[in-house]
Nucleic acid binder design. Structure first.
Lengths: 211, 211
DNA sequence: TTGAAACACGAACGATCGTGCTGATTAGGG
DNA sequence: CCCTAATCAGCACGATCGTTCGTGTTTCAA
């Protein structure tokens, strides 16, 4: 982050290159494994075995399991950003952006970016009844995601690409419902036709894809 | 498995009244607790403590934890039948039935019949990545639920209460998406306005409530 | 090149998990 | 009323959980 002054503020432990690589490998595995085993069901021993480390060696990178869970969420957020948000943001704001966000989301399900579908849907369902820092972080990310959808919907309405009738929050709720359903159905049954149903529903909500 | 009977089929162990009462109490607690802790996270010791029994005393009612989980699902199904399906089935088939199923479902969320929202959405999200008998049973129940929605939608179309355009499966997918979203959002944030959004979406799909 | 610090390991801890066994208590059919 | 068996508690097991500690090994800055 910052190594400000040689003299003042020794601050956080200076990191070694191999240490960062290990930590990255741990969190990559953790983010993917958490969509299968859950963030709580993910055990240190199993994660260590999968990463090819000892249990204590892995654990030394974190001060507690909760810190590991929070770091895993952060890593999952980066993956989601790369696989879904960044590509969608290349489309111009408005209806095109809204369609792109939806399509990229469905695509990342179809490409099995996470083996257990949408990371935040999976761990959100796990922690919705477990108040604490983990649930809070998940809730914040979901609000950001919804905020991005709402912004695109509002822009689309301002541009006259969508009727003003269902307000952006309501429209986004319905779009997000289809995306959540796609995650749940596809993860449970594995049939890509269940993703196509979401696309059909989106077309009924937003009209046909622009371009 | 069973003793070959001098007379005829003594069959399964004859049950005592207090035994049945205990088993019922266990499963009542288990069904509700499972929506909070998960079917796997639900531990025998915690369930025993909550029911006021010893761990081994409770465990004697089941041959394994998986059997306990299956019995818990069965009990949850009965609760769902009582709280959602039975009332909705009093409405005549067609659009009224479809609306009633949706409304009763949302009502059972709002009344917190299960503390963790919809039982089958909760445990379905937990077991979608865990193949086995438990996931299978959950999948079967969901198919039955969807089947009931589809049947009502098809009847509504035959009666001319709904346009034929989105076929019953597609329409049901979109209805179910709103109900799933209501569960997820309400369980995560606890705001009843999030249930109302689902009702608004349903009205856009099905038209205003009949009657 | 050397020395301090980051890194990774093995071993062990207390707690909790699911699961058995044994024996006392008690309900309920003959 | 009695006797069988259903019920349930106590105790203990091996496994696994998150977590800590001490000890070598490796990196990298001075």
């Amino acid at each position: 982050m910052n190594q400000p002054t040689p003299t003042a503020a020794p601050a956080q432990r200076r990191q070694r290159a191999d240490g960062r690589r290990s930590r990255d490998a741990i969190l990559d595995n953790a983010a993917r494994l958490a969509t299968v085993e859950g963030l709580e069901g993910l055990s240190i021993a199993r994660l260590a075995e999968r990463t090819g480390m000892s249990k204590s060696g892995l654990y030394a990178h974190f001060t507690s399991k909760e810190e590991l869970q929070l770091a895993t969420i952060e890593r999952a957020q980066e993956i989601f950003e790369t696989e879904v948000l960044r590509p969608a943001r290349m489309k111009p704001d408005g209806l095109r952006r809204l369609w792109a966000l939806s399509d990229e989301f469905l695509s990342h399900l179809e490409r099995n970016v996470f083996p257990g579908g949408c990371f935040f849907a999976a761990v959100g369902a796990e922690f919705d009844t477990h108040p604490g820092r983990v649930k809070e972080r998940i809730g914040v990310f979901i609000e950001e995601w919804v905020g991005e959808l709402v912004a695109a919907a509002a822009a689309a309405q301002r541009a006259g690409e969508l009727p003003a009738d269902p307000d952006p929050e309501q429209l986004t709720y319905e779009v997000d419902a289809l995306l959540l359903m796609a995650h749940a159905a596809y993860t449970m049954y594995g049939d890509p036709a269940l993703l196509e149903r979401a696309r059909v529903g989106l077309a009924r909500l937003l009209g046909p894809r622009p371009e």
